[in-house]
Amino acid sequence: MADLVLETHNLTKEFIRRKGFSSPRRPLDKTVFTAVKGISLSIERGEIFGLLGPNGAGKTTLTKMLCTLLLPSAGNASICGFDLARQQGKVKSRIALISSEERSFYWRLSGRQNLDFFAALHGLSKKTARQRIDKVLEIVEMSDAADRRFQEYSTGMKQRMGLARGLLADPEIFFMDEPTKGLDPIAAWHLHEFIRNRLAAAGKTVVIATHHLAEAEQICDRVGVMYAGEMRASGAVKELTGDASLTDFFRDLVEQSMVEPSKSWDVGGMPVEGMPVEGMPE
């Protein structure tokens, strides 16, 4: 029986916007934008799952919901058996969010001081924190630079610090939002190796939101392709693409989505429900 660590059922996120002064006659009128529509997903322990899609497809919104940063408008989800809406504390103890956002650190503090602060927020005692910090710094090869101010790091070093922070509490699921953004090809390759050989090999689950198809093809066990908030296809890369490349498959899927927004696709033996898409470009 599959050991599922992440399950979502019909997860939906709608944002309500008031028209305000752009519509002076009716400033209180609302518009509803559905960023994520009815996503149902199951991810197994130790799996590397790629969330693919063009900009604005809903990858980051879905990731933020799964990290408890956004409340779903409908549907439900569980992480490691804990309900996303009702057991947020337990969910947070089992996840890490690693984004490409460099500004999520205190730039005037050293790398070690930053990690010490976040270790405390994870509830690690001083002694455990010290040991974990030394260990994760060693893993990301930042031990020598740990006492330098964060603002002195290169982009690659900042990304490694993000990874080190994610590793601090030894979570079960890593959510990575565009993890190789801004990295040179060598640094990106090192990160891919790390995800495959250290995280997945240790039974950790990794969910990567990316629009770099080569990255997804290279390291993901399965991918889900999002477009306009919907999951248009999901499955193992080879199952989905057959003999074609992921890039060709992705392009065809996006083009078809634009032409026939309500069509149902049957991809790689996995029927995917097509739904009418609001706000689709003509």
Binding site: L69, K90, L97, E101, R103, F105, Y106, G123, A169
Partner: peptide, 14 residues
């Protein structure tokens, strides 16, 4: 504004 709030909010701290 610094950008650290989300990083704090994904930790198990209220």
């Amino acid at each position: 504004m610094i950008g650290t709030l989300e990083a704090m909010l994904v930790t198990p701290t209220r």
